[in-house]
Amino acid sequence: MRIGILGPTESEIMPFISKILNKKLSEHAMLKFYSGIYEDVEVVSAFCGVCKVNAAIATQILISKFEVTHIVLTGVAGALSRDLEIGDTVISSEVAYHDVANGILTEYHPWMKDIYFRPDGELLKLCEDISKTLSGTSKCHIGRIITGETFVTHNEREGLIENFNPLCVDMESASVAHTCYVNNIPFIVIRSMSDNADESGLETFENNMEMAALNSIKLVEGLIKKLGESKKQKNRLS
């Protein structure tokens, strides 16, 4: 088992990378990858950069160069559902692009049945279980995440809600999910809210980013620990 953990920016991933033991640094495609051990599990982590292409590049490198068995994307997102407060965390049940025509994914490679990428069931269940044990005032939700490459304006929100019924929006999740899908790699996306329907925009995002990122990382750390415990249990039974 080797887990790949990505975050779009340093603020969204370095608090986790700082806890990796026996870190080794390597560079590929102008990206820095940190490999080592967390909770007795092999991990490889990087901040991939913002936007879809950067996230896809980093994901493919994790798969091809580091041969990871699972991928987790962590970071922040903008809430679209009014059920979400700033700091709340969304665990992906489905992930989709909101700025790619539907037929591109269903009529061409990778010839999907619909436009939604779905995470690994075991990872989703583990995240759900862990979320129920986390302390603090912020809540965890399971639902749909959509991805596009611009900050969503207040005027655009209603259209996205009507078309996709998502919980939140970001700039990387669908491309990570897409890359995992074509490589048959289990994935999960965990994003905490840096802004919502009432408080949106770049300034709000920057003000809340650090707090929200830590909420997301807390769940990621719990997931890795659970995966490590599960692996040990399976080894004892074999």
Results as ranks from 00 to 15, higher is better:
R2D: 04
G4E: 07
I5H: 05
I5S: 09
L6Q: 03
P8S: 15
T9W: 04
I13M: 01
M14V: 06
P15R: 03
F16M: 08
S18R: 15
K24I: 08
L25N: 13
L25F: 06
S26F: 09
H28W: 09
A29F: 13
L31Y: 02
F33T: 01
F33S: 05
S35R: 08
S35A: 10
G36D: 08
Y38F: 15
E39D: 12
A46I: 02
C48D: 01
K52N: 12
N54A: 12
N54C: 03
A56E: 01
A58P: 02
T59A: 08
Q60N: 15
I61N: 00
L62H: 00
L62A: 02
I63E: 00
I63L: 03
K65E: 14
E67C: 04
H70Y: 13
V72N: 03
V72A: 04
L73S: 12
L73K: 10
T74F: 09
G78W: 06
L80N: 10
R82I: 02
I86C: 02
I86G: 08
V90W: 11
E94P: 06
N102K: 14
G103D: 15
I104R: 07
E107P: 06
E107D: 15
Y108T: 15
I115L: 13
R118L: 11
D120L: 09
D120G: 15
E122Q: 14
L126D: 01
L126F: 03
E128F: 04
I130Q: 06
S131H: 04
S131F: 01
K132N: 14
S135V: 14
G136Y: 11
G136V: 11
G136A: 10
G136F: 10
S138K: 14
K139N: 14
H141R: 13
G143T: 12
R144P: 11
T147K: 10
E149Q: 12
N155T: 11
R157T: 09
G159C: 03
L160E: 01
C168F: 01
V169I: 14
V169F: 05
D170V: 07
E172F: 05
S173L: 07
V176D: 01
H178C: 02
T179I: 15
C180A: 15
V182K: 07
V182F: 08
N184D: 12
I185T: 12
I190R: 05
S192L: 11
D195K: 07
A197S: 04
D198L: 12
S200Q: 10
F205R: 08
N207V: 02
N207M: 10
E210F: 08
N215P: 03
S216W: 11
L219R: 07
L219E: 05
E221L: 05
L227K: 12
K232Q: 10
Q233P: 00
Q233G: 00
Q233D: 08
S238R: 10
